[in-house]
Simulated assay, not measured.
Amino acid sequence: MTNRRDELAANLARVEERIAAACAAAGRARDEVTLIVVTKTYPASDVRILSELGVRHVAENRDQDAAPKAAACADLPLVWHFVGQLQTNKVRSVVGYADVVQSVDRSRLVTALSREAVRAGREIGCLIQVALDAGASGRGERGGVAPGGVEELAGLVAGAEGLRLDGLMTVAPLTGEYAGREQAAFERLMDLSTDLRRVRPTATMVSAGMSADLEQAVAAGATHVRVGSAVLGVRPRLG
């Protein structure tokens, strides 16, 4: 059986090669793009190996998995990102370990995050999750706020105690005008980021792209890519 460390090291090297090649093709420096490894469903032991291999940013999308894992890895020099849809009743727990919440998409969540950040004596970085597939409801099927709502929500974050407005995040839509047009979607996010930075110049982070479309995200100008399966492998279904 393949040694897990060797397996992760080889996968990580392949992803690094992809990012480096995408940066070169886009005329960007490699250090302009930060790799966030999405460790959801994988054990703390994998996070520990990744840290030994030089990974500094990890992401989770479910608090019930993330909280014990973050506690088990509290001694590691990691930045923890929360990337899933976040219910307000989970905010207190998430604020306990997350350094950045990438899925801020409604005012109630901003209020809850601010309250718990102040209570915990922490500053939490926030990304506004943009739903490029937002329909009449103003929200996307995987969460997020419609592009037209970004400025207002960003203002709420920027004015909230205990929170820091870091930038924008999106997931390539599966439906709507950007379905199958990942690079166009990410370019739209970059346009929104440019607009936001005119008002909030420190909100420079643009999180876009995953295992299948990181090249398109880098080409569009993303500063952070979120890669799970390409580093950790496809987890077998239980049962």
Rank of each mutant, 00 (worst) to 15 (best):
N61A: 07
L156K: 15
V118E: 03
W80V: 00
A24K: 13
R62M: 04
L153G: 07
A179S: 08
Y97E: 02
L156M: 14
E182F: 08
V218L: 05
V79S: 14
L132E: 11
V95L: 11
V145L: 10
G84F: 02
V101C: 09
K69Q: 03
V104H: 11
L8S: 03
A146M: 07
P236N: 02
A9N: 13
A25S: 12
V94L: 00
R226W: 09
A20M: 05
S137K: 10
D213E: 01
Y42A: 13
R4M: 00
K40M: 04
L189Y: 10
A74E: 06
R164L: 14
L78W: 00
A44N: 02
G162W: 11
A71R: 14
V100W: 11
Q102H: 15
A160C: 07
E123A: 15
R30Y: 00
R14D: 11
D213A: 01
A13C: 11
V227N: 01
R62C: 02
E141H: 14
R200G: 10
A184T: 07
R106S: 12
S114D: 05
I49C: 07
G228S: 00
S114M: 02
A222N: 08
R226E: 09
A203H: 00
S45M: 02
N3D: 15
V33K: 07
A74F: 01
G125V: 08
R62N: 07
L76V: 05
R235S: 04
A230T: 09
G155D: 06
A203Q: 03
Q216R: 14
D31N: 12
G143K: 00
D133N: 11
L165A: 10
L192R: 04
R142Y: 15
G138C: 03
V227Q: 01
A26R: 09
A29M: 06
N89A: 12
R14L: 09
A59E: 04
R142H: 15
W80M: 00
S51H: 06
H224R: 10
E52K: 15
L127K: 09
P68S: 10
L165T: 08
A67R: 15
T170F: 04
E16S: 15
G27M: 11
R48K: 09
L174V: 13
R62L: 07
E17C: 12
V101N: 03
A136Q: 14
V145C: 11
L86D: 01
A134R: 03
S93M: 13
Y97V: 02
L192S: 06
D105S: 06
G138K: 02
C126S: 03
V55E: 03
I128C: 07
V47S: 04
L86R: 03
L86W: 02
G125N: 04
V38A: 14
R119C: 09
E52F: 13
E187Y: 13
V15Y: 00
A24Q: 14
V118F: 05
S207D: 04
A98D: 01
V206S: 02
T111S: 15
R197P: 05
R139S: 14
V55C: 02
A184Q: 10
R122A: 06
I36Q: 14
A70G: 05
E123M: 15
R119V: 13
A71I: 10
P236E: 08
Q87C: 02
G239I: 11
G135F: 00
I19A: 04
A154L: 10
E187A: 14
H224F: 10
E152P: 04
T202Q: 15
L86T: 02
V157K: 05
A154C: 12
D99I: 09
V234Y: 11
V145F: 06
N89W: 12
C126F: 06
K69P: 04
S193K: 13
